[in-house]
Design a protein around this nucleic acid. Structure first.
Length: 955
RNA sequence: GCCUUGGUGGCGGAAUUGGUAGACGCGCUGGAUUCAAAAUCCAGUUCUUUCGGGAGUGUGGGUUCGAUUCCCACCCAAGGUACCA
């Protein structure tokens, strides 16, 4: 009895310890951040998760652990730390589940969040849960709706290069029309004078303003899936059919809200230079924005009152343009096609319309096109230029039309060859009989009138000047980036704070927000094809009383379009927007809301943002490169323009954690019989590999045969051919996924080894940014390290540390501090192991060594550190204990074991005093018997001596 | 095709400014302890070797007294992107 008790005290009982400290942290609010502090601030943020029904697997917490370590470290370093967590809780899976089961998404979301919270708590994170946000919480999405309204009330002034209040634009219009305004606006914005503006009806004014607002309503082509009754995002479509169910998808024009992110294209590009983000991520944003410099050129169409505008990056080759190509969807096609060509053109347009965008992209080798019969006029030579249509020109890029220069562009070249169109050569000394010449650097222009003899750069400059002179072009920068469609025909998303009067959108005032999601019977689209919110019976806006009312109250004028029938009693009730916002709406400002999450008066107070400013360290997956991270930067810049945010980039440093891949296990089934061969016996047999659940396999790749039979009853009676009495499985690295049965659940690992072991092991696997395979077997290494460390604190003494003890401690402090600052968490774990191994060998019991060691370990393995800290006699949490200070003096050595190399190869080592000079070292080495043995009588050509480092003898 | 990142033992990986390649851990081998197992501890573990040594960081070159590290060319893998005019 007594013996058991003693043993229990000595053993590392991680289950008890971890539960104890998790409770302590929660009860004492150890990690609650204050918005008032004299300390410097540190804001460490991990991307908040979508709470899925499957829960976390070991790959998910990797970034959280890293950020938790860094944040805890900063706390030890005297920073006031903000380390929050929340949930991106609007989203598709909950809605799909609701459609299938009828359960309200809010209910399933709540259940999933609870499960997530349990799993997160179990890992011992230092999150300030008092600041939790949920995007689906009306108190939170009130502010998502608020940002939307701010965007609606703003336009982008290109002269001041920032977003400004829409009222300023209206006064411009009133004073001088829109001629002198440089603004981000729709391409089809008409020119008008102040008088014309004044004469516009209220509705026309609103329509014009929509062309300038930073969020606007417009007809947009979307991917509509009739079978699913919804629009799909591009990534939800695979090979032209829906990812879910494989239903056909068509392009459909729908009135949708869009975000004028293109207004910020250049600033989004420039801002990348100011942040410490991974290069691949910056590159993919740069590519996505797709800036290209060139010129826009206007070609007049002969015999028509029409112009074709093209964008080209090679205006210098304009004299080589021998035809033009329009996208088949180009608006001028039907207008300019001659009667003789009409039949061919119609047939071609019909054929292209049938092909999906994806088919067209996939099939790049087939050259196809049709001549319209029309000609454009070359701006300089005035020669006729035949106008073709061809599906190699995309309607969605540039102007949907190109001036084709076959000698300088391979696609134009191929097209010209295929249809026997002339290929004039405008390059000096270049052979174009085989292929086009696209080398800008070595370009010398010829046969080009006033451009002859010029280089690419000079010719571009000169031709743009000439185009401007004749009013047929100008220098232009084109972006690939499109405005972002912001409407979704979904239920489980933020409602737009919008109602419609005479078809024009009106914003609901801030004091009446949030506009809460209505209850619906069904989560599917209505029979008339309206979004799920069309099923709501209580979804109309009473603009007089500012509240949501029953649809029955809708004004007659809205109902059937006859204003004279407007019902008196129901006046001022209007329909509400039926679309909801996309998934990225709620995540585009959450990082700022954490600064002041319970503020009901503002998205956050100015005091809060003045103190916290921006995120110091943001960790999350690289899959958000062109979604969340681009949209968030856009909203941040907008709020910066409005003076709401203090920084125009929200995150100083960003790290993409690598993916943790699974190590799948395979059994080998004989093709002809129900026989399973162990891995070593499958050679020469006709077998197929079958996935086995990784939880049925031990560290030595042995399969638990009985458990396997139980798991897959079809193998209940199978014959297992063993080797040495064991069934050995094959292993392969694959993406961690349910279907591959290689998902490893953190709960089971915490149960068997503890959260501290899991945290250490995830870090120990390798560099944070790299993708790396998971193999649970290796966790025993870090687990026995913790046991060894625990043992070290068995009998703590107040004794003086030895010089050796101090050296071990201080080299550990130095290395761990450097590692954390460099986000090299894997190497710190090794350093801890070395330190504990050394102190164990030294039989160190000194409190003055073991106390700082506990602090060093605490960011990584916080539970054991707290427990040891308490055993060292402290009553307060270790969380705020100051980080140990490294002292160089303990590492100073008097001698050095010099590596002695011959021709760069190490041959032997020689211990010499460190204060020995160059010549003395050389003399000592040359006198050594092993040197003579190496040289075998040869005279060395040269002796390199780097004191304190190395000796190298050449010869 | 283009852009990016990477390539080191059986495996994960280390070597931070060019200076002892393979730290640390897994696995494996042998041993101790145990009735036995687990756990723990000790020793070994890049390859090769005639036991002196020799070779070695994707391949081939280069710079250097010295290269995993810097330069050039190429190969392979992963991720992103693609008829972008």
């Amino acid at each position: 009895m007594l013996l058991e008790k003693v043993e229990a005290k000595m053993n590392y009982n991680f289950r008890e310890i971890e539960a104890k400290w998790q409770k302590y942290w929660a009860k004492n609010q150890t990690f609650k951040a204050s918005n008032q502090s004299d300390k410097p601030k540190f804001y460490g943020l991990s991307m908040f998760p979508y709470p899925s029904g499957a829960g976390l697997h070991v790959g998910h917490p990797l970034g959280y652990i890293a950020n938790d370590i860094y944040s805890r470290y900063k706390r030890h370093k005297g920073f006031n730390v903000l380390h929050p967590m929340g949930y991106d809780s609007f989203g598709l899976p909950a809605e799909q589940y609701a459609i299938q089961t009828g359960q309200h998404p809010a209910v399933t979301t709540e259940v999933n969040i609870k499960r997530y919270r349990e799993q997160l708590d179990q890992l011992g994170f230092s999150f300030d849960w008092s600041r939790e946000v949920r995007t689906s919480d009306p108190k939170y999405y009130k502010w998502t709706q608020w940002v939307f309204i701010q965007l609606f009330d703003s336009w982008y002034n290109q002269k001041t290069d920032k977003a400004e209040d829409i009222h300023g634009l209206i006064s411009f219009f009133e004073k001088e029309g829109n001629a002198n305004i440089q603004a981000a606006c729709d391409d089809d914005t008409p020119d008008f004078s102040a008088e014309e503006w004044a004469s516009f009806s209220e509705k026309t004014k609103q329509e014009v303003l929509l062309k300038y607002r930073l969020t606007y309503l417009a007809d947009t082509e979307v991917n509509w899936c009739p079978a699913l009754g919804t629009v799909l995002a591009n990534d939800e479509i695979v090979n032209g059919v829906s990812e879910r169910g494989g239903h056909p998808v068509i392009r459909k024009k729908m009135t949708q809200w869009s975000m004028r992110i293109t207004a910020y294209a250049q600033r989004l590009l420039d801002g990348l230079d100011t942040v410490d983000w991974p290069q691949p991520l910056k590159d993919s944003q740069t590519n996505w924005i797709g800036r290209s410099e060139g010129a826009s050129v206007t070609f007049k169409v002969k015999e028509h009152d029409a112009n074709i505008e093209v964008f080209t990056t090679r205006p210098d080759t304009i004299f080589g343009a021998s035809f033009m190509t329009l996208a088949p969807e180009h608006e001028l096609v039907s207008q300019i096609t001659t009667p003789e060509q009409k039949e061919a053109i119609d047939a071609y347009m019909e054929a292209t319309a049938k092909r999906s965008e994806r088919d067209r992209m996939a099939d790049v080798k087939t050259i196809s096109g049709v001549f319209t019969g029309a000609y454009a006029e070359h701006p300089f030579t005035k020669e006729p230029v035949p106008i073709w249509i061809g599906d190699y020109v995309l309607a969605s890029y540039g102007t949907g039309a190109v001036m084709a220069v076959p000698c300088g562009d391979q696609r134009d070249y191929d097209f010209a060859k295929h249809y026997n169109i002339p290929i004039p050569n405008i390059f000096e000394g270049v052979d174009i009989s085989e292929e086009a010449f696209a080398d800008k650097e070595n370009t010398v222009i010829a046969n080009s009138d006033f451009l002859d003899g010029l280089s690419y750069k000079d010719a571009v400059k000169k031709v743009i000047e000439a185009l401007e002179q004749i009013g047929q072009g100008e220098g232009k920068i084109n972006y690939r980036l499109r405005d972002a469609v912001f409407s979704r025909q979904r239920y489980w998303g933020e409602p737009f704070p919008v109602y419609y009067v005479n078809g024009m959108p009106q914003m609901i005032a801030l004091e009446h927000l949030p506009l809460e999601l209505p209850e619906v019977e069904k989560y599917l689209p209505t029979e008339t094809g309206e979004p799920p919110l069309g099923n709501a019976t209580h979804w109309a806006w009473d603009a007089k009383n500012n509240k949501v009312v029953s649809n029955e109250m809708l004004s007659q004028v809205q109902h059937d379009g006859h204003s004279e029938l407007d019902s008196e009693s129901h006046e001022g009730v209007y329909p509400l927007e039926l679309n909801t916002m996309p998934g990225w709406a709620g995540s585009s400002q959450y990082f700022n809301r954490y600064m002041d999450p319970h503020n009901d008066e503002a998205i956050y107070s100015q005091e809060a943002i003045n103190y916290w400013q921006d995120v110091d360290l943001y960790i999350g997956g690289s899959e958000h490169a062109t979604g969340h991270l681009l949209y968030s930067r856009f909203w941040q810049k907008f709020l910066f323009d409005k003076g709401v945010a203090t920084k125009d980039e929200f995150a100083k440093k960003l790290i993409n954690q690598g993916m943790i891949t699974g190590t799948s296990a395979f059994v080998y089934k004989d093709l002809d019989s129900n026989t399973l061969f162990s891995k070593g016996l499958k050679e020469g047999k006709n077998v197929i590999p079958v996935h086995a659940d990784v939880s049925l396999v031990n560290a030595s790749d042995e399969l638990d045969v009985e458990a396997f039979k139980k798991w897959q009853p079809e193998y209940k009676d199978a014959e297992f051919v063993l080797e040495d009495g064991k069934y050995i499985v094959g292993r392969e690295i694959e993406k961690m996924s349910k279907s591959k049965y290689n998902v490893v659940n953190p709960d089971a690992i915490c149960e068997e080894y503890g959260a501290d072991s899991l945290r250490l092991y995830e870090m120990f696997l390798g560099p944070l940014e790299q993708s790396k395979p998971w193999n649970t077997a290796g966790i025993t290494g870090v687990h026995s390290f913790l046991k060894k460390m625990w043992k070290l604190y068995d009998a703590i003494e107040e004794s003086e540390p030895t010089a050796e003890n101090l050296k071990t401690l201080h080299k550990t402090i130095k290395k761990v501090e450097e590692d954390i600052e460099n986000f090299s968490f894997n190497t710190s774990v090794s350093t801890f192991m070395i330190c504990v191994n050394e102190l164990t060998a030294q039989k160190c019991k000194s409190k003055s060594i073991l106390e700082p060691l506990a602090i060093l370990v605490s960011p990584y393995a916080p539970h054991i550190a707290e427990e040891l800290w308490e055993r060292l006699g402290h009553n307060e949490s270790i969380a705020e204990a100051p980080f140990p200070i490294f002292k160089e003096k303990y590492l100073v050595e008097s001698t050095k074991e010099y590596p002695i190399s011959f021709n760069g190869k190490l041959r032997f080592k020689l211990e010499l005093p460190l204060d020995m000079g160059k010549d003395e070292i050389e003399a000592a080495v040359m006198a050594h018997e092993k040197t003579h043995a190496q040289l075998q009588g040869r005279e060395p050509k040269k002796v390199i001596v780097v004191p304190g480092k190395i000796v190298n003898i050449v010869g």
